[in-house]
Design a binder for these strands. Structure first.
Length: 365
DNA sequence: GCCTATGATTTCTA
DNA sequence: TAGAAATCATAGGC
């Protein structure tokens, strides 16, 4: 626990004092100190708050230039750390004054009053915008990365997306085609880059947070910094880093989208269906020439028989209908061929059935 | 390289 | 939303 926190924790008994902080007489009564003493100290404090740093230094340290004190009051800029720790380099006069102030019996009480006032004013105003709800854009990106298999547990490099891409390319989703493995390899590469970058960001964030917290703790020796204030600073840092993370997530999503679209473009590299599949489709088409519109169930059945997708079956029938209609003469020969084939098949089935039903030859054929 | 066949996509319509 | 029609893009034969 730092000095400041210890001080705040140890000053529980001063609650009554801080309640009446707006009334100097009440403070005097409770502390039992001479009016002049309190008045002087308060006046000194008020004067210090109105003074610029340079003025204060010039007052305490008139014989030396304050240039070496460069830097801002912002703890995040690093310049402030030196101020609290550079005691060894300070002139004796300043050190004496500092020591006197630190050892003054009123210091803890006044310090705690200052802390409470600060907490009630600054933090109550600034604390309003804290506790933001989760950013919907981050949630959307997270969901997308999860669905694509980039974030979350490894699931074969986004197998669902890979299967979709492979299916669109005309291959079976499970055939382990070149496109499929290539897609998975590229996705794994994206995943790896994403995770390594994310790790770097997280590490940088925690390092920077620790650095800033150390600075604040250091500074809390010389100015009141409450734990809440440190918390607020940490949350600001986290917010900054999360916006960087969002950029990383966004560009990862874009990379996945580009990869996907590239694989979906491969669909135009069509392969002709194999002979057996074409025969199955043609058989159905010509045997249902009066109504060549297979139902969903029939499409699924045909898709299964031909080892293609239902939408490919739909495409095939769409193409076949329009091309047949446009040029019936050209397809007449093919139609006759399949009509004969269908008739022969039907005759065979019928013959087999009658043979099976015949008591003389129950097991023949 | 040209031509035809064919699977896929896009646009329009009922 | 399924299907028709037009179109695109590629395979494969010559």
């Amino acid at each position: 626990m730092d000095d400041q926190t210890r001080m705040l924790a140890g000053l529980g008994g001063l609650g009554g004092l801080t309640q009446d902080v707006g009334d100097p007489d009440s403070v005097r009564k409770q502390l039992g100190q001479p009016q002049q003493d309190i008045g002087d100290i308060l006046q000194q404090i008020m004067a210090i708050t109105d003074e610029s740093l340079d003025e204060a230094q010039a007052r305490c340290w008139p014989e030396e230039a304050p240039a070496q004190w460069g830097g801002t009051d912002d703890p995040t800029e690093g310049g402030g750390a030196g101020r609290g720790t550079a005691g060894g380099a300070l002139p004796l006069n300043f050190q004496h004054r500092k020591h006197a102030l630190n050892c003054h019996r009123m210091k803890p009480a006044l310090f705690s009053v200052l802390c409470e006032i600060k907490e009630k004013t600054v933090l109550s105003i600034r604390g309003v915008q804290e506790e933001d709800p989760p950013d919907p854009q981050i949630m959307r990106l997270d969901n997308m990365l999860l669905a694509e298999g980039v974030s979350g547990p490894e699931k074969g490099g986004g197998s669902a997306a890979a299967a979709a891409a492979a299916a669109a390319a005309g291959g079976s989703p499970n055939d382990g085609s070149i496109e499929h493995s290539d897609y998975r390899a590229k996705l794994a590469q994206i995943r790896q880059i994403y995770h390594s970058e994310l790790e770097k960001y997280e590490q940088a964030c925690s390092e920077f947070t620790n650095h800033v917290m150390n600075l604040l703790r250091e500074q809390s020796r010389t100015r009141p910094i409450s734990p809440k204030e440190i918390e607020r600073m940490v949350s600001i840092i986290h917010r900054k880093f999360s916006s960087i993370q969002m950029q990383l997530k966004q560009s990862t999503c874009e990379a996945v989208m580009i990869l996907r679209s590239r694989f979906l473009d491969a669909r135009r590299k069509r392969r002709n269906f194999n002979k057996q599949a074409t025969e199955v489709l043609n058989e159905y088409f010509y045997s249902h020439l009066s109504n060549p519109y297979p139902s969903e169930e029939a499409k699924e059945e045909l898709a299964k028989k031909c080892a293609i997708t239902v939408s490919q079956v739909s495409n095939w029938f769409g193409n076949k209908r329009i091309r047949y209609k446009k040029n019936i003469g050209k397809f007449q020969e093919e139609a006759n061929l399949y009509a004969v084939k269908t008739a022969v098949d039907a005759a065979n089935v019928s013959a087999q059935a009658s043979q099976a039903n015949s008591p003389a030859t129950p097991n023949s054929g």
